[in-house]
């Protein structure tokens, strides 16, 4: 299979994502510049972390207008797997591909540290290699990672199993400690923690490997989502 890692001006985890995907799957990975309008040649799409457009105005608010985002939307609607990590998650919410918003951490500081996550849904194509209730260690590195949404939306996310991960401890004030959410169809995942920084023992965790491996498996096995 072939992956696309989208590069926006200001993306800075693009190379890390490429390295992690390569390490986890051995698949072909292509860095795709944000001006690209056609993502049909790719089987899975990753929006990496960073500070697209400097996070000026609002995180992800400018990147959502990049030409590539129309293609991301089209491929998501076609059922392809789309993973947004950190700034990628923020862009996906700004683009309306995921509900809710990511705002300033409640303690008002950037926070970079290993975080313990609870796997809330192990049936998605992104999380099928984890077990529900399992605790995994994946680092966070964000200043604006506090997930918020209307109560009704949060209830619906919980009811539909669309909360993929929660934080074991409250690291940023997120509603219901949400760390990652799925779209309604289950083929778009936004995640504040960085699985690409948890792919080797020396990094302090290898738990991120299973996310990329799960995506690979879902694509190779032609799992139909939705």
């Amino acid at each position: 299979m072939r992956w696309a890692v989208i590069v926006f001006p200001g993306s800075n985890c693009d190379d890390d994502a490429v390295a992690a995907i390569t390490r986890a799957t051995g698949d072909e990975v292509v860095k795709v510049w944000h001006q690209e309008r056609d993502l049909r040649p790719y089987d899975a799409i990753v929006l990496p972390g960073g500070f697209s457009y400097g996070d000026y105005l609002r995180c992800g608010a400018i990147a959502r207008f990049s030409p590539v985002m129309a293609a991301v939307r089209a491929e998501a609607e076609a059922g392809k797997l789309v993973l947004g990590i950190c700034n990628g998650f923020q862009i996906l919410t700004e683009a309306g591909l995921l509900p809710g918003a990511l705002v300033r951490n409640h303690h008002l500081q950037f926070r970079c540290e290993m975080a313990e996550l609870v796997v809330e849904n192990d049936r998605s194509p992104f999380t099928s290699l984890y077990r529900r209730g399992e605790r995994v260690r994946i680092p966070i590195a964000h200043g604006e990672g506090r997930y918020i949404a209307d109560e009704a939306v949060l209830d619906e996310l919980a009811r539909a199993g669309r909360i993929a991960f929660t934080y074991a401890a409250d690291v940023n004030g997120s509603a219901r400690r949400i760390a990652g959410v799925l779209n309604e169809r289950g083929n778009v995942l936004g995640l504040m923690p960085h699985p690409e920084r948890a792919v080797a023992a020396w990094m302090g965790s290898e738990d991120g490997l299973r996310m990329f491996a799960a995506i690979h498996r879902a694509v190779e096995e032609g799992v139909h989502v939705g």
Binding site: D16, F110, C112, R197, M203
Partner: peptide, 11 residues
């Protein structure tokens, strides 16, 4: 101090 810095980017 250092948990306000991104210490692990570039992996």
């Amino acid at each position: 101090i250092y948990r306000q810095y991104d210490t692990s980017v570039r992996a």
